[in-house]
Every structure is written in structure tokens, then in C-alpha cells.
Design a protein around this nucleic acid. Structure first.
Length: 421
RNA sequence: GGGGGCGUGGUCCAGCGGUCUAGGACAUCGGCCUUUCACGCCGGGGAUCGCGGGUUCGAAUCCCGUCGCCCCUACCA
């Protein structure tokens, strides 16, 4: 029997990080074993389970590059099967009618034990589980029934889901057993918390893959980071390609305790992925995210300084648009005594510069000015930086000036000079 | 209340009875580099492994208790 794992997101239209990690673990498991990764929707809430919401989830999964082999089967298509199973359970005496709803009968005593791949042996006294509703009075199925029936019908062999479902497992096991079905292998992975120890939510900043994508994170970096949230390969490995992740991932090594999502670490890892990207590829991604054309030189001089694609704009956006104004703080600090005079000298030097107007030539001209005025390099460079970018933070000044071009640089210096007057 | 699960520096992960004076990453601090910010490199601080017992020559690692946190206990998923 080949492995079949399934991911069943809650179709709220937003793929939360926790859900993304669950999907990733399922996907890694299936890919690593040459098995099948399938999707399905089992949320019976009509408000949530809309085609639009489901499509948004699928988009997020596609962006993460977690391809699936089938599905998702919509909840509504399987309604018949759920109804049949409920009826079967009623007829066999495993369930009974209670004020219109159908309840599953749980024995008053006894013990239900099962093996969990990450948690080990888990045992529950049945006395602690009340008879539970499996079909509402309006005839619609409830979660525990739907899951059990779907797992059976789809031949699911491995169920990897959040630890909040541990307590539901005995109920699903009882339904499966009453239906005469073979139970799958269960693995419950730890939950994700925000920095305050509470369940991760929007209050904690970016909490969905859609938000992370828009914030300029790379899918491959996110996969790497998320994989490490509850799993580790060995003592020292942090960076792994997706191929390595697939090869090395195993449920047995998944941690048992809840993890806290730390965007700073994601940023740091993303920065490294960004730096290792081919410049052309990075440019393509910047353009895809922003929908704007990005000059190759702008990418080249800012690549080593960004951590996310969004960082590009404050860093090198001055090469695309003329800054709308000057950062007040920066202006104060840099445009003090003598700065205008030095800027004028820079202006003349650059104007007089021959071709090619490249970083090396610009450096020569600017260092001449430094020498002539007998000041520190930054006394010349920082005013230029503020003049052309509006701030004190930018890529290297020679590269920046060369990338901007003589004409535009001079124009911006003139504008700054006018502003200081 | 009942049931279940978890507990290693601020965060994530490693550690599975001795090689642990507990390792790596992020964060933090200091230094180098230097035109800013980063990157990179070097170095530092920070954990009596929740706490208390026990087993053992020896425990972060095994056992018991205790405390804390989380989950389920819905005609939510």
C-alpha cells in the first residue's frame, strides 16, 4: 500500500503559518516517500467553505510551491458518503437520535489507546468522553464524522495535523472502528504560538503566507524557516535546499513542544537566500512582486543589503523615482557647515568627468574633492547621499552615483543646493 | 471540574545514561572592515536543562511527585 497523506486547511481564505507548516510537513513526508499528497476541504461551515476562499488557499499553496496530486475534493461533493455513514452507524446501534441530532455512543468504561508518531503512546479513558454529535438536526455532518469518512474513502494512510486534534483522535478512531475501516497512522505536530505564548494570530503581525509573500519573503526561504519550526535535522544545520528537506525530513524527529514564530529569524534567513539569488532572478522577483520595472543596476548595488524584496524600495528606489523630499533628521545631521560648498565642488567635478561615467571614475573624482577640502570622506559622501536619495542610508555612494547617471545626479545636487539656500 | 499533551539561554532546533565545564542558528553586546546602512569576519554575555525527590559509580537524559503553559471537554474545526 502506498503512502497517501492529506492536508485539510480551514478555508477561511487565509493560509496561516501554522497551516502552511502542516501542509509543508505533509508534503515533505509524501515527497520523501514517493507517496501522494492530496488536499481536501472538510470544513462544513458554508460561510467559510466558499469557492473563493478555497481558491485563495490554493493560491497560497501554489506560491509556496507545494504541489498536490489530486483534489481538493469539496466538502459538498462528499455529502452523500457522510450521510450514508451516519445512517450506517445509526442502524448498527453505534449512534442514536437525540433531539433531532445523531449522537455517537461512547462506552462508559474502558480505555482507548493509539500510537502517535511524534507523541508516542496515548491513552484515553472512555469515561471522559461524552456521547458526541456526528450529524446536526439539519442533517449536515460534523467534523469528526466527516474526517473519519473522508480518511476512509480516500485511502489516507498518514494523518499529520496540529496537536489541537489529539483529543479528537479517539472519537475518529471509534467512528472508523464502528465503520469497520482501517485507521491511518497519526502524527500530531506542535502548535505555533505568538511571542506572548498565545495562539498565533493577526495581532502578532504577519501571520499568513499571503502577508509574508507581500512583505517580500521568498517561498524557498519560508519553506526552510517553517520546516525548522518544530523540526531540526542535526546539531548544526540551518540552511537546507528543498531537495534536502525532502530527503531529510522525518516525523520521528518532529519536536513535541509548541514553537514561537520569530519573524526576525525569517528575515535573516530570507536575506541570505536573497543574496544567493542570481541578480537576474532577483530582478525578476522584484518586478513580479511590485509590478514595476526595476533597473538591473539598482538590483546589483542593493542585493547585499536587503533582507526582503520590500527592502529594495527604501534602499534603491531613488534610482526608479526621484525622492519626494528629504528626511529631516538626515538633512540636519549632514547638511551642516560647509556641506553646500563641498556639494558644489562635487557638482563641478562630476560635470567635468569624462566617459565612461562609472563607479571607478566617480570614485576618483569624489576622492579628489575629499583631498582638496582636507575633510573626512563622509563629509563629502553623506551630503551627496542625502542629495540624491533623501536619506543617509543607501548602497555604496560611487555605485549609486554611477547608476543614477551624471545628468540626474547633478540635477539632484542642484535641487539640494536650492533647498539649502 | 474531567481528560490529554508539553516544559533545554529572549526565540527555534540539537542532545536519547558518561566524550555536556550543554552544541548550532536568530536576537543582543563589543571589535575589525568602512563613505552610510548592511554583508562578512573575530570575540563576549546569557541555561544550576521548570521545581523537588528517587534510581545509579554517574542524569538534561530513567522513575515518582509538584508547579506552569497549551489542547479537548460545541448541533466549531
Amino acid at each position: 500500500m502506498s503512502m497517501r497523506v492529506r492536508f485539510a486547511p480551514s478555508p477561511t481564505g487565509v493560509l496561516h503559518i501554522g497551516g502552511a507548516r502542516t501542509a509543508l510537513y505533509n508534503w515533505l513526508l509524501a515527497r520523501g516517500a514517493g507517496g501522494t499528497f492530496v488536499l481536501r476541504v472538510e470544513d462544513t461551515d458554508r460561510e467559510r467553505s466558499t469557492p473563493e476562499n478555497v481558491e485563495r488557499i490554493l493560491e497560497a499553496l501554489r506560491w509556496l510551491e507545494l504541489d498536490w496530486d489530486e483534489g481538493p475534493l469539496s466538502q459538498w461533493e462528499r455529502r452523500e458518503r457522510h450521510a450514508e455513514a451516519a445512517e450506517q452507524l445509526r442502524e448498527s446501534g453505534h449512534a442514536y437520535e437525540d433531539e433531532g441530532a445523531l449522537r455517537f455512543r461512547v462506552p462508559d468504561e474502558g480505555e482507548l489507546a493509539f500510537h502517535d508518531v511524534v507523541l508516542g503512546q496515548i491513552s484515553n479513558p472512555l469515561a471522559a468522553i461524552k456521547d458526541f454529535v456526528i450529524r446536526r438536526s439539519d442533517g449536515s455532518p460534523l467534523y469528526n464524522l466527516a474526517v473519519a469518512v473522508d480518511d476512509r474513502d480516500m485511502g489516507i494512510t498518514h494523518v499529520v495535523r496540529g496537536q489541537d486534534h489529539v483529543s479528537n483522535t479517539p472519537r475518529q478512531l471509534m467512528i472508523l472502528r464502528a465503520l469497520g475501516a482501517e485507521p491511518p497512522i497519526y502524527a500530531h505536530i506542535p502548535l505555533l504560538h505568538g511571542p506572548d505564548g498565545k495562539k498565533l494570530s493577526k495581532r502578532h503581525g504577519a501571520a499568513s503566507v499571503q502577508e509574508l509573500r507581500d512583505a517580500g519573503y521568498l517561498a524557498e526561504a519560508l519553506r526552510n524557516y517553517i520546516a525548522l519550526l518544530g523540526w531540526g535535522y542535526d546539531e548544526t544545520t540551518t540552511f537546507m535546499t528543498t531537495a534536502e528537506l525532502i530527503e531529510r525530513f522525518s516525523l520521528e524527529r518532529v519536536s513535541k513542544n509548541p514553537a514561537v514564530f520569530d519573524e526576525q529569524k525569517l528575515r535573516s534567513m530570507n536575506g541570505r537566500y536573497l543574496r544567493e539569488l542570481d541578480a537576474g532572478e532577483l530582478r525578476a522577483r522584484l518586478e513580479a512582486l511590485s509590478g514595476r520595472a526595476v533597473p538591473p543596476e539598482a538590483v546589483a548595488i542593493s542585493q547585499e543589503k536587503m533582507q526582503t524584496l520590500a527592502d529594495f524600495w527604501p534602499l534603491a528606489g531613488f534610482l526608479v523615482d526621484r525622492p519626494s523630499g528629504y528626511d529631516e533628521d538626515a538633512w540636519e545631521r549632514v547638511m551642516g557647515d560647509g556641506a553646500p560648498e563641498r556639494l558644489r565642488a562635487v557638482r563641478e567635478a562630476l560635470s567635468a568627468l569624462g566617459e565612461p561615467f562609472d563607479a571607478a571614475a566617480v570614485e576618483g573624482a569624489l576622492r579628489d574633492v575629499v583631498k582638496r577640502f582636507e575633510v573626512k570622506p563622509k563629509d563629502v559622501f553623506q551630503p551627496i547621499r542625502v542629495a540624491i536619495t533623501g536619506t543617509t542610508v543607501s548602497p555604496g555612494i560611487f555605485e549609486s552615483v554611477a547608476a543614477l547617471g551624471r545628468e540626474e545626479t547633478v540635477a539632484r545636487i542642484d535641487a539640494a543646493l536650492a533647498h539649502s539656500a
